[in-house]
Design a protein around this nucleic acid. Structure first.
Length: 273
DNA sequence: AAACTCATCAACCGCACGCAC
DNA sequence: GGTGCGTGCGGTTGATGAGTT
């Protein structure tokens, strides 16, 4: 037979995570890694379902998360990617190291959408709204029966066209990802954007005990550390965020067992450049 | 100062896909 | 091959804070 059910939701906690829960989850994952999300809450001593733990980790606790508002260049990149990929947020997010699909999705829905509309474009199709309306009018004048047939044969609908194109492009992109990556212009542009955003955003040079530097993104917390009143009031969010986890400094954080692997990885990256 | 509206985003829900049995 | 679970994804909701009246 199949496996055990993911979780029975009876008696499981829901809603915002507390500092204590965050602490338990982060501590557990950094020390043990993730083998099976279903087991994580049990082993970490949390009254949450595995799904909830996974989400919390991915969207909020991951040490490599980049915090802070998205820059204009990032927004533009998102728009370009959305035009190509549609609402495939995880795909889009994969182009932005340290950003989550949820973050990008939220940003799209709350800000970029408006910006696009303001510019007279349809956020779904990325076409000028007037052009869109004309096409819609044309569709409306076609008898429904005809339309159905036509829809079966060829996709008249602009959205579908764009989405299909996006899917095609995406498939092609998956296959040709390496090829695309060799496109030096695009790569340079991406790198340039990334450098720009690293320069303008919440990025720090972490220094280890030997004096080596890690050019990495700060693990500082946003939105006043999500409902965490003890932290949000401070102006030095980064220090507070370290203290939140019981770290006095970046040194002690990196010397934490769970960060050893990350530290080594960062070292390797640094040395390979 | 209170009431109301709007914007933001963390978290939830349901579905699809892949894999284990 | 069929069944059911685990995971990941995208859509949606609702709590909260900020801004406005």
């Amino acid at each position: 037979m199949g496996r055990q059910p993911c979780c029975d939701k009876v008696g499981l906690k829901r809603g915002p995570w507390t500092i204590d829960e965050d602490h338990k989850l982060m501590n557990f994952i950094l020390n043990n890694g993730i083998q099976c999300w279903r087991m994580v809450p049990k082993l970490a001593g949390l009254l949450r379902c595995g799904k909830s733990c996974r989400l919390r980790w991915i969207n909020y606790l991951r040490p490599d998360l980049k915090r802070g508002a998205l820059s204009e260049s990032e927004e533009n990149q998102i728009i370009q990617l959305h035009a190509r990929l549609g609402n495939r947020w995880s795909k889009i997010a994969s182009h932005f190291p340290g950003r989550t699909d949820n973050e990008i999705k939220n940003h799209w829905n709350t800000r970029i959408k408006k910006r696009i509309k303001f510019n007279g474009l349809d956020p779904l199709t990325h076409l000028p709204v007037e052009q869109e309306e004309k096409i819609e009018d044309k569709i409306e004048t076609i008898p429904e029966s005809n339309l159905q047939k036509e829809e079966e044969n060829e996709t008249l609908d602009v959205t579908a066209t764009v989405n299909n194109k996006a899917k095609r492009d995406d498939t092609e992109m998956d296959e040709k990802e390496k090829e695309v990556n060799t496109n030096s212009d695009e790569t340079n542009e991406l790198l340039k954007n990334y450098e720009m955003l690293c320069g303008s955003l919440d990025v720090d040079l972490w220094i280890d005990q030997e004096g080596n530097t890690f050019n990495t993104c700060s693990p500082s917390f946003s939105r006043e550390d999500s409902l965490n009143p003890s932290i949000g009031e401070s102006s030095t969010a980064k220090e507070d965020s370290l203290q939140q986890w019981g770290f006095d400094s970046v040194y002690s954080m990196l010397s934490w067992d769970g960060f050893n692997a990350l530290e080594q990885e960062l070292f390797l990256m640094e040395n390979s450049q």
